[in-house]
């Protein structure tokens, strides 16, 4: 089957991540916009969420999440604040486990991995946390070099070569000796980006890379994500609620609301969706199903 045919084929029942059909516990009204439609991309999924439920105390965050993030593409999980986007990232890397359901990374069930296997599996990932999550006791060079020193046998010269190249990519060549508390929020984020990419991971996760950045820096960061993805490939997943960023870099979009996918699919198809919620969210309009509640 050609790529075009694959993209045009209807959703098969055998598709692992498919239309959400279960009835909502809060009543059908709450999920009336959630078609759960997952438009095919024609490539296999690097990460799959299968009917994932997660609650913190009485606060249910994920309520039957079904989602597939395709291999080799820049995917974006979009949604209003507090819908569980960051919780999704933590499930992917095994920092949180689902109360019910499964999370698969390259077909491996993350919740069923033993500790050693989990630490091994995490080497596939690069994660950019919201505030960079740099180690406060190390300068920038050591922060970016940390994964290389932990997981490779490279010589110190090789490591410094790679680290300097990564820092140059994110425009931080001069800041190598600075400690994280001497950097601005944007610089910390860019440094976190350099650290996330230093091992050339198969899967890179970005948790709101645009938060706290000015529009120009956001645009530059998006460009950087695209460039590095073109260069290295892999499955990139960006968590954001910034529509401009989505328009710039997304190849695949999943819209998350109230713990479930409203709709997912290739970016251009989502931007032309006739789902009222998706249309409202992707146009940033005040009119539509999403209110202040």
């Amino acid at each position: 089957m050609s790529e075009e045919e694959k993209a045009d084929r209807p959703i098969e029942p055998s598709d692992r991540v498919k239309v959400v059909q279960e009835s909502a516990p809060g009543g059908a009204e709450e999920y009336r916009w959630h078609t759960g439609l997952n438009r095919p991309t024609g490539v296999p999924d690097a990460i799959e969420f299968i009917d994932v439920h997660k609650a913190f105390g009485r606060n249910k965050i994920l309520k039957g999440l079904n989602l597939g993030l395709p291999e080799g593409k820049i995917s974006m999980i979009l949604g209003p604040s507090g819908t569980g986007k960051s919780v999704c990232i933590k499930h992917m890397v095994g920092l949180l486990y689902p109360d019910d359901g499964d999370v698969l990374v390259h077909g491996e069930s993350v919740p069923n991995l033993r500790d050693e296997e989990l630490f091994e599996m995490r080497k596939k990932f690069g994660v950019l946390f919201q505030d960079g999550a740099l180690f406060g006791s190390m300068n920038l060079l050591d922060n970016v070099a940390f994964p290389l020193r932990q997981h490779t046998d490279k010589s110190e010269d090789e490591i410094m070569g790679i680290v300097n190249a990564r820092l140059a990519e994110v425009g931080l060549t001069e800041a190598g000796d600075k400690m994280p508390n001497e950097l601005s929020g944007g610089m910390r984020k860019r440094a976190g980006f350099a650290r996330a990419l230093v091992l050339d991971p198969d899967i890179v996760l970005f948790d709101e890379p645009d938060s706290g950045l000015d529009p120009v820096r956001t645009a530059l960061l998006c460009e950087l994500i695209q460039e590095i993805h073109e260069e290295n490939g892999g499955a990139y997943t960006v968590i954001t609620h910034d529509i401009m960023s989505a328009r710039r870099v997304a190849e695949y979009i999943a819209v998350l609301w109230r713990g479930r996918i409203v709709e997912a699919g290739p970016a251009e198809e989502l931007f032309n969706s006739d789902n009222d919620f998706v249309r409202q969210f992707l146009s940033g309009s005040a009119q539509g199903p999403l209110g202040m509640e």
Binding site: V93, L95, R122, F129, Q150, H151
Partner: peptide, 8 residues
């Protein structure tokens, strides 16, 4: 979290 994700 970053430490754990880095396999430590």
């Amino acid at each position: 979290d970053a430490l754990q994700v880095l396999g430590v």
